Amino acid sequence: MKAKIPGKCPSCENTLLVTELECSACDTRVNGKYSMPLFNYLLPDEQAFILDFFKESGKLNTMAKQHKVSYPTLRNKLDDLINKVKALEKAMNSDDES
């Protein structure tokens, strides 16, 4: 299994920053403090849901059949994920202002 970049500090649960990037071809390194994409802060099953949603062009009826759940169940999952993304965006924006 491929290692995933953690989004939270395992010690204090604060947001982690990327501080170095390296090119695997020429060993060039870029140093600084960079926030990670919002997608990295989502759980693996939430990321998979978003990818499925994208690949199905947002057709929840098709996704409901594939996941063998009802449309309302899938819609609720999408609404919960939308609320989580909004909360993450708000938190990330407030971190930027600090």
Results as ranks from 00 to 15, higher is better:
Cys23Pro: 02
Thr15Pro: 15
Ala64Ser: 06
Gly32Val: 02
Lys4Asn: 15
Lys84Thr: 14
Gln47Tyr: 00
Leu21Glu: 09
Val30Gln: 10
Asn76Gln: 11
Glu46Asp: 04
Asp96Arg: 15
Pro10Arg: 06
Thr19Ala: 01
Val85Ala: 13
Glu13Tyr: 11
Leu74Ile: 00
Ala48Thr: 13
Ile82Glu: 06
Asn31Cys: 12
Phe54Lys: 15
Gly58Asp: 01
Thr73Arg: 02
Arg75Ala: 01
Ala3Asn: 10
Ser35Asn: 11
Ser11Gln: 07
Glu13Ala: 06
Ser35Ala: 15
Ser70Trp: 02
Pro6Tyr: 03
Asp96Gln: 15
Met92Cys: 13
Gly7Met: 15
Thr19Ser: 03
Val85Arg: 10
Glu20Cys: 07
Met1Lys: 12
Leu88Ile: 14
Ile50His: 06
Ala91His: 07
Phe39Glu: 14
Thr73Phe: 03
Pro37Gly: 13
Asp95Phe: 11
Ala25Arg: 08
Gly32Cys: 04
Asn93His: 00
Glu89Trp: 02
Gln47Thr: 03
Leu43Ala: 14
Asn76Ile: 07
Leu42Lys: 08
Leu74Ser: 05
Cys9Asp: 02
Ala48Lys: 12
Cys9Gln: 03
Ile82Val: 08
Leu43Arg: 12
Met36Pro: 05
Thr73Pro: 05
Phe53Trp: 05
Phe39Asp: 13
Glu22His: 01
Asn61Pro: 04
Gly32Ile: 07
Asp27Trp: 15
Glu89Asp: 12
Leu43Glu: 11
Phe53Val: 07
Glu97Trp: 08
Phe39His: 13
Pro44Asp: 09
Pro72Lys: 13
Leu17Ser: 01
Asp52Val: 03
Lys90Ala: 07
Ser70Leu: 07
Leu51Arg: 15
Arg29Phe: 01
Asp95Tyr: 14
Met36Ile: 05
Asp80Cys: 14
Glu22Thr: 03
Ala3Lys: 13
Asn61Gln: 01
Phe49Trp: 11
Met1Asn: 09
Thr15Val: 12
Asn31Lys: 09
Ala3Tyr: 12
Met1Pro: 08
